[in-house]
Design a binder for these strands. Structure first.
Lengths: 121, 121
DNA sequence: GCGACCTGCTTGCAATAGTTAGCAGCTTGC
DNA sequence: GCAAGCTGCTAACTATTGCAAGCAGGTCGC
């Protein structure tokens, strides 16, 4: 009955996987699920349980929350957390690297037009 | 992977139900699930899917998040938000731009010594 | 006593989540 | 050519979820 909702989830997962440069099998391995099943999830054929989602969130290094939200399992808004904030808080980057990345981000989002990205910090 | 965490979940749900002064049937009704199934969940015999949990959280008027945490489906605290995730969730960037930015991020953090994602050769 | 109404629990059964084995296609090297 | 190595997908299966139907026990008024 809810196919479109979960189709969207699958697409999201596939996008995240591709961004992480992982093949279907590699992600499946990392998340301890079978690769055909992951394939079916991404195409919206199967609807993963929350445990599977949790594994996937860990394997993809994104918060379980954002995945659940995408899956329609959480309605509430919780962590809007901007890219600015996230970069600023990242411990792996030094100050200069943060600056580079932020410049990049600003440039990209400006190219894309549509928005008033005045918010800078 | 997560075996014993669910006994605790059932107890928690039963506590919440009793706190709300609802009978098993009334809560089941409210959450649109069958009463035998709710019974089994509360006794830890069955392990509810996230959709069921969501229904229950609404019926019990508690946040989905607290239930998921109780169910062991969320480990993290609520604002770990990685750069990875923030970029992925950003609506100002299109897919290609996200990829670029993430590549950049990976490269930078790799230089710095810590590795974010698995190797990709 | 006996229905009518609750309470929570047990028992099959249908639907579907998740698995293993294997297929087709596309590169890269011999 | 063709074997070895990936890529994602299909098919056939098992395991588990979630259900409808019904059971045992309690409490009420009659």
């Amino acid at each position: 009955m809810n196919e479109s909702k979960h189709g969207d989830l699958g697409t999201f997962i596939r996008q995240q996987r591709e961004r992480a440069n992982l093949s279907l099998r590699r992600l499946a391995d990392k998340a301890d699920i079978s690769n055909p099943y992951l394939s079916q999830i991404e195409r919206g054929i199967r609807k993963p349980s929350a445990e599977i989602l949790k594994s996937l969130s860990r394997a993809l290094e994104i918060s379980a929350n954002s995945l659940y939200k995408r899956a329609g399992l959480i309605d509430e808004e919780l962590a809007p957390t901007s890219v600015f904030e996230a970069i600023g808080a990242d411990e792996r980057l030094d100050t200069e690297q943060k600056k580079v990345l932020l410049d990049m981000y600003r440039a990209l989002s400006r190219i894309n037009g549509t928005v008033t990205t005045e918010k800078q910090e």
